[in-house]
Computed example of a mutant assay.
Amino acid sequence: MTRQTKLIIPKKKAQNLTDVAYDAIKHMIIYNEIGAGEFLSENVLAQALNMSRTPVREALKILASENLVEIHNGIGIFVPNITTREVHELFEVRSALECAAVKSFLKNVTEEDLTEMEKSWIESKEKLEAGIEVSYEDLAGSDHKLHALILDKSDNLIMQDIMHSIRQRIQRIQALSISKFPYQSVTIQQHLDIIQAIREKNEEEVKRLLAEHILFAENNVLKDPDFHL
C-alpha cells in the first residue's frame, strides 16, 4: 500500500483470521481505499490487522481467484487496473443475466424483500433532499443488495453461479461508478422506479429499467477523466 489506510473489519461471530483478512482487504479494494495499480505488502497488512502473515496470504489467494488482486511471483501483489473492455464486458454480462432472471425473480420476491430494499433508498432520498450527505458506500451497498437479490431469488442456478463468479469485480466497478459522479439523486430514483415496477410485477418494465440503469452506471465509469483505463 502506498498510503496509510484505515482498515474496516466487519464483525462476525466465529470468523477465522483468513475471513477477517479477506473481508477487510476486499472492502478496501472495492471502495477504492487501495487504488488500482497499488502494491500490497503482506507484512504491512498483517501488522495493520494484528495477525500473522499466513491468514493474510491465504486471503490474498482468495482475492486473486476473484480477480481483485494479481500475484506475480518474484515481483509482488498488486490491485489490477480496470480496463474499458472489462467494464463493458462485465456490465454487458450483468445486464443480460439480471434481465434474464427477472421472470422467475418476480414469482419469488416477497413484499418483505421489497419493503426492506425500498426503505434504504427512501432514507437516502430524504437525506439528500434535506441537504444531508449520503455516503457513497451506503448507496453502493444498497445497490449491490438489490441487484444481488434479483439473481438470488431467481430459479436459474447456473445464472446464479455465473454471477457469483464475477460479483466482486462488478461490485468494485459499481462502487467506483457511484463514488465518482454527482448523480446520487438520479441513481436513487432509478432504484425506486425499479422497485415499483417489481412490486407491480411488470416484467417488461423491470427489464427496461434495469437495462437503462446498468448502461447509465457503465457510462458513469467510462466518462470519468480521472479513471485510467
Rank of each mutant, 00 (worst) to 15 (best):
L209P: 05
Q15L: 07
K6M: 10
I82W: 01
S41Q: 05
Q47N: 12
K127G: 12
N108F: 08
E212V: 14
T110Y: 13
E42L: 06
A175G: 03
A64D: 06
M159G: 09
A64I: 04
Q160R: 13
I188K: 00
K153C: 04
H72L: 15
E70G: 13
A140D: 02
I166L: 00
E203F: 11
N156M: 05
F105G: 09
L222R: 03
L106D: 04
E129W: 11
K201C: 04
L192M: 04
Q168R: 07
G35P: 12
D23N: 13
R172V: 05
A24E: 09
C99E: 06
A24W: 01
W121M: 08
K125A: 09
Q160Y: 08
P55C: 03
I8T: 08
T18C: 08
N73M: 06
Q190P: 10
L139P: 01
K11R: 08
L60I: 07
S185Q: 11
P55E: 04
E33V: 15
L215N: 15
A101G: 15
E33G: 12
A59N: 10
A36Y: 07
A21T: 00
K125W: 05
D155H: 07
H213D: 10
H72E: 15
E112P: 12
V20F: 11
N43S: 15
I62K: 03
E200I: 09
H191Y: 08
Q174E: 01
A217F: 04
G35H: 02
D152G: 14
S104C: 11
E123N: 05
G74M: 11
L68P: 09
V102F: 07
K107M: 06
V109P: 02
S154M: 07
D138P: 02
I178K: 00
A14V: 12
L128R: 01
K11H: 15
S179V: 03
I71N: 01
P55G: 13
K180M: 12
E98H: 09
K12V: 10
D193Q: 04
V44G: 08
L90W: 00
I132K: 09
L229R: 06
Q4Y: 12
E137Y: 02
N220Q: 08
E205P: 00
M28V: 14
Q168P: 06
E89K: 11
L63C: 11
N50V: 09
T54R: 12
T187P: 06
L229P: 08
V134K: 02
S41D: 14
G74H: 12
I75V: 15
Q184N: 14
E86P: 11
R94N: 11
N67C: 04
S95W: 10
V44E: 07
C99F: 01
R199H: 06
K12D: 12
P80R: 02
Q190W: 09
D19C: 13
S120I: 03
N220P: 03
E203C: 11
E33I: 09
N43M: 04
L114F: 03
V69R: 00
N32D: 13
A64F: 04
G74P: 03
E123G: 01
I214L: 05
S124A: 15
